[in-house]
Design a binder for these strands. Structure first.
Lengths: 206, 206
DNA sequence: TTTACTTTCAAACAAGCGTTTGATATGTTG
DNA sequence: CAACATATCAAACGCTTGTTTGAAAGTAAA
């Protein structure tokens, strides 16, 4: 099955949309810029997706994030190792600069600036992610723990991770030589894992 | 010394600007909305501040954040206690909902969406804050530590803190009953302090 | 009161936005 | 080929944005 010409511009639009949305946010992105990058007419967005909102809804795609979680569960490792593995692949998704994976970056954008699509993002991607992490943290602590306390540990972990993405403009100015290459990302991931696991071990019986 | 009529609308504009900027971000805020809340004409912003950019520059004010740091240094306490004190007052600044202190919230906004004022914010407020925290962390660990490692600890701490502000729209949807009252903020601050200090103690000689 | 200066205001401006339109091209089907 | 549905396009629409304008109102000193 080959692509019809309309399907071709559709996928070009979706790809360009992910690029621009993840870079500029939904508000900052313009339909004209997306169409320019997709070599398409301004009217193409509304023809194929109905509206800018519709384009965003179709551009969102949580498969990478979900794959990350199911792979992690499938991995036959102890909870602490699985935590390390998760953080590493999560940071790669979040920071990879020439990324085929703009999905998480779009989500990180939406988190600060709500759009009509935020409800979908929360219920389909963020809520499951939080539950996944809460479960993993419970396994690591291995001691019954207050629900609200587990939740705050999840927030502490995710807060550390998304910080590098959300505050990238600031970090860039603080340390202009900073580049998110594979090596740097892995170093960051290792720090976050060390930091988080150390904090979690305290809560565990001795 | 009393306020001239022009000074009065100036301060009303500044107050309204802080309100709207902290709620909507710079891009999302409109001059018309600010003027509406300040009971001023649309032209008032350009008359008094030259432009929307100029209004932002004057609305920014880092005195609360600086006072927080100097008070903390002045307090005659051990580093760990000072860390707890700092986190608590920082979270109060960040989360206080009917806040006279919109300053930190504006800064948190800027961090995700760069504006022409970001350079000023970084050099005058964020860089000193990071240095302050780096020093505090070094005191807590009390062992010579790699500069990049200290920096990442600073990021871990700040990341946890600003998460509650930047991801507020998400957390609101995840837990609609969430309210940032005094008690909740203090509980959050205590968690972050416990979490962070536990992680830092690991790095310290036994 | 007159003069000079500052502040406010309704109105308009130019530019950018998402979206719509109607014509033109393209492709598919009988 | 003819007929029809689909896809693209330049152009324009209606709206909002930050900003400017020039007149009116207010203020203070001589």
């Amino acid at each position: 099955m080959t692509l019809s010409s309309s399907d071709q511009t559709r996928v070009r639009l979706l790809e360009a949309a992910r690029e621009v949305f993840s870079q500029c946010g939904f508000q900052g992105a313009t339909v004209r810029e997306i169409c320019r990058r997709a070599d398409a007419n301004v009217a193409a967005v509304n023809y194929h997706f109905g509206s800018k909102d519709g384009l965003l809804a179709e551009a969102l795609n949580f498969s990478a994030l979900k794959a990350l979680q199911s792979d992690n569960i499938a991995a036959d490792r102890c909870p602490e190792i699985r935590m390390r593995l998760f953080i590493k692949s999560f940071m790669l998704l979040l920071l990879d600069e020439n990324g085929a994976s703009r999905q998480c970056q779009m989500m990180a954008r939406e988190m600060a600036d709500p759009t009509p699509a935020l409800d979908k993002i929360v219920s389909e991607a963020i809520a499951p992610l939080h539950e996944f992490l809460a479960k993993l943290i419970r396994e690591i602590i291995a001691e019954p723990l207050d629900e609200s306390e587990v939740r705050r540990c999840v927030y502490s972990l995710i807060g550390q991770c998304v910080f590098y993405r959300n505050s990238h403009p600031v970090l860039q100015r603080l340390r202009p030589e900073l580049r998110y290459d594979q090596q740097e990302i892995e170093a960051i991931a290792e720090h976050i894992a060390d930091f988080t696991l150390a904090a979690l071990r305290i809560k565990r019986p001795a």
